[in-house]
C-alpha cells in the first residue's frame, strides 16, 4: 500500500471511528486534558500499522485495543482504576432527599455562552463528571445507559448532572455579575 492509499484508508477509518474512540478514551482516562493526546496516539499507532501493510481483521476492535493500551500506557496501572464514588454515602442519601420530584434537568437554563469557562470548569472536576456530561450531552445517552457504562446507579448519575449544572449556573451568574460591576 503506498502512502496515498494508506492515508485514504486512514482518513476513512478515522471519520468512521472517531466518536467511539473519543468516547472510550473519556470513559477510561483520568484527566480530561489527556484525551486529545491519547486519541492522537491511538490513530498514529493505527497509521503505523496500515503503513506497514499489516492486516487487521476487525478495525474497530483493533482501535479500541490500541486505545486501551494507550490509556494504560498513560497511567500505567494493570487493572482498572476503582471508580471512586463522587460523594460519601451520607451525601448520596442527602442528595436523593433534596432533589425536588418535579425537577427536569433540561429546564435548567444556562443563558451564557461561555465555552472556555465550561471547559475549565469540567477539567477542574473529577473525571467522572466529564464522562457523564459527555455521554449525556454529546452522545445523547439516556441516564440508564450512562449508569451501566460507568458502573454507577441511575440516581447517582442524575445527582451529578443536577448538582453540577446548579453549581455551574451559579458560577456563571457570579462571573457575569462580576463582569458587569
Amino acid at each position: 500500500m503506498n502512502v496515498q492509499n494508506s492515508l485514504q484508508t486512514f482518513e476513512e477509518t478515522y471519520q468512521k471511528t472517531y466518536s467511539d474512540i473519543v468516547k472510550y478514551v473519556i470513559c477510561n482516562c483520568s484527566n480530561l486534558e489527556d484525551v486529545k493526546d491519547i486519541v492522537q496516539e491511538v490513530y498514529l499507532s493505527f497509521y503505523k500499522r496500515i503503513d506497514a501493510k499489516k492486516d487487521i481483521d476487525n478495525v474497530e476492535s483493533f482501535l479500541i485495543g490500541i486505545a486501551k493500551n494507550k490509556v494504560k500506557d498513560y497511567y500505567h496501572f494493570r487493572y482498572k482504576e476503582k471508580l471512586l464514588s463522587l460523594f460519601s454515602k451520607k451525601d448520596e442519601f442527602e442528595l436523593i432527599e433534596q432533589i425536588p420530584a418535579n425537577v427536569n434537568i433540561p429546564e435548567i437554563i444556562i443563558h451564557q455562552e461561555q465555552m472556555d469557562f465550561v471547559w475549565k470548569y469540567l477539567k477542574s472536576k473529577k473525571i467522572t463528571v466529564a464522562r457523564i456530561f459527555y455521554l449525556y450531552y454529546q452522545m445523547d445517552y439516556p441516564l440508564k445507559k450512562i449508569a451501566d457504562e460507568l458502573n454507577m446507579t441511575e440516581s447517582n448519575v442524575k445527582n451529578v448532572l443536577y448538582r453540577t449544572l446548579k453549581e455551574l449556573n451559579r458560577l456563571i451568574q457570579k462571573e457575569s455579575e462580576g463582569n458587569e460591576s
Binding site: I110, F133, Y137
Partner: peptide, 14 residues
C-alpha cells in the same frame, strides 16, 4: 442557550 447546546459546542470546540 440550553445546556445541551452549550456542552455540545464545548466538546466540539475542545
Amino acid at each position: 442557550m440550553n445546556p445541551k447546546e452549550l456542552f455540545q459546542k464545548t466538546f466540539d470546540k475542545y
